[in-house]
Amino acid sequence: MTAHISTLGDLLNTAGTQWRVYDMGRKITKIDKALFNQLENGQVPYPYPLAGHALIAIQFWDNQATADPYVWFLKMPLDEQSKLVLASRDHFANMVLEALGTELTGEQADGKLDNNPYVFTPNANKLAAFNALLKTELKRPASQYYEFTEQFFAGNLTDDAWQSIAVQGLADFAFRLDHGQNNANLTKVWTSLPQEVQQPLSAMLEHVEINTQLAELFFTQCEQAIAENNLNLLINNMRALSGSKAQGLKSQLVEQVLASELGNQPDVLLTLAGRYWLCFEKPEALFKLLDLAVNNEQMPELFPSIFADLVAIPSLRPHVLGILRAENRSDTLSRAIGRLFS
Rank of each mutant, 00 (worst) to 15 (best):
Q151A: 12
G180H: 03
L157E: 01
F152L: 09
T187P: 00
T158F: 04
S202K: 02
N185W: 09
A142Q: 10
F173L: 09
Q181N: 14
P194Y: 06
L157K: 03
L177T: 02
N182Y: 03
Q195T: 14
E196P: 03
Y145V: 01
Q198G: 13
G155L: 06
N182S: 06
L157G: 01
W190I: 07
Y146K: 06
V189D: 00
Q198C: 06
E147P: 00
H179T: 02
D172T: 07
L170S: 02
D159E: 15
N182Q: 03
S202N: 02
A166M: 12
Q168I: 10
E196T: 15
Q144L: 10
Y146W: 12
Q198S: 15
S192K: 14
S192L: 07
N185L: 04
G169C: 09
Q198I: 10
G155T: 10
Q163S: 11
I165C: 05
A171L: 04
F153M: 10
D160R: 10
L201W: 07
L193G: 08
W190Q: 03
W190C: 03
T158L: 08
A184D: 11
T187D: 04
A184P: 01
P200F: 09
A154Y: 01
S143I: 05
Q144I: 13
V167R: 13
E196W: 01
T149S: 14
D159S: 15
G155N: 05
Q168S: 15
Q144W: 00
D178E: 13
V167E: 12
N182K: 04
Q144E: 14
F175S: 02
P194D: 02
S164P: 00
E196D: 15
Q198R: 15
A203S: 09
V197N: 08
Y146G: 05
D178W: 01
L186D: 04
E196V: 14
A184H: 07
D159L: 12
L193W: 09
A203T: 09
T191H: 05
S202T: 02
D172W: 12
F173W: 03
Y145N: 14
F175Q: 11
A154M: 08
I165F: 03
Q195D: 14
Q144N: 11
G180Y: 07
A203M: 10
F148K: 14
N183C: 02
Y145D: 15
G169K: 11
